[in-house]
């Protein structure tokens, strides 16, 4: 017997599966998918922005705020200059058209490579409960841009801040239909505690995560 049949056979025997009780099991699966019932959730109150800002700090992300998308490049240039980081970056193709050059930045819209120092992305939405970015992969929003560079800068429209992960899933179902290849929830820079349980920032991913909140977009 092949491994699949063998394993499933033993599970079925252990569960007492019969033709008679199989429809009830299948019905439970369908009921779960139909209900998509949520577990207990914290009530965050009305001010999701304040919560998002606070939790982003807990996750060691820094936060800036601008009025419009067109102001983002200047905010990026300012951030990079303050930290004496190179004024060049790789950006999601989705944001290729922002006025990067005007802000003095050399920005390329392509897949990130191992030696790119700065990666600029947006997000699908942002989760106030934990200060988390939810990103969805697509041709114009590749996953590696938020991962390979030492500095990750993310554009977060205020209109896209939701309370919890459940709200992010609801948005994804409504806007995307089915899930993209990669949904990444990103909460601050990469870290490790594997040596003496001491937290060190910058394990394999970025050392810095900087969020630029955008009021009108």
């Amino acid at each position: 017997m092949d491994a699949r049949e063998d394993i499933l056979f033993r599970v079925r025997v252990a569960l007492g599966r019969t033709d008679a009780n199989r429809p009830a099991a299948a019905a439970d699966v369908q009921a779960a998918f139909a209900a998509r019932s949520q577990g207990p959730r914290p009530q965050l109150g009305a001010d999701l922005l304040a919560r998002f800002r606070h939790e982003s700090g807990v996750q060691s992300s820094s936060v800036d705020e601008v009025a419009t998308l067109d102001e983002v490049p200047a905010a990026v240039a300012r951030y990079l200059a303050e930290r004496q980081l190179p004024q060049r970056a790789v950006v999601w193709p989705k944001y290729a058209a922002l006025p990067w050059a005007q802000a003095g930045l050399a920005v390329e819209a392509r897949a990130a490579q191992g030696d790119d120092a700065v990666g600029i992305t947006g997000c699908f939405c942002a989760i106030a409960e934990t200060g988390t970015l939810m990103t969805c992969s697509a041709p114009d929003t590749p996953a590696a841009t938020s991962l390979l560079p030492e500095t990750h800068i993310a554009i977060v429209p205020l209109s896209r801040i939701v309370a919890g992960m459940e709200d992010g899933w609801a948005l994804a179902r409504a806007e995307l239909g089915e899930l993209p290849r990669a949904v990444n929830f990103i909460s601050g820079p990469s870290r490790t505690g594997d040596i003496e349980q001491t937290i060190v920032i910058g394990a394999h991913g970025p050392y810095r995560v900087h969020l630029i909140l955008v009021r009108d977009c």
Binding site: E178, F185, S187
Partner: peptide, 15 residues
């Protein structure tokens, strides 16, 4: 942690 730094939900292959 309130949440781990990276939580990925991966579905299928590259388009």
């Amino acid at each position: 942690q309130h949440i781990s730094n990276y939580v990925s939900v991966l579905t299928g292959v590259k388009g």
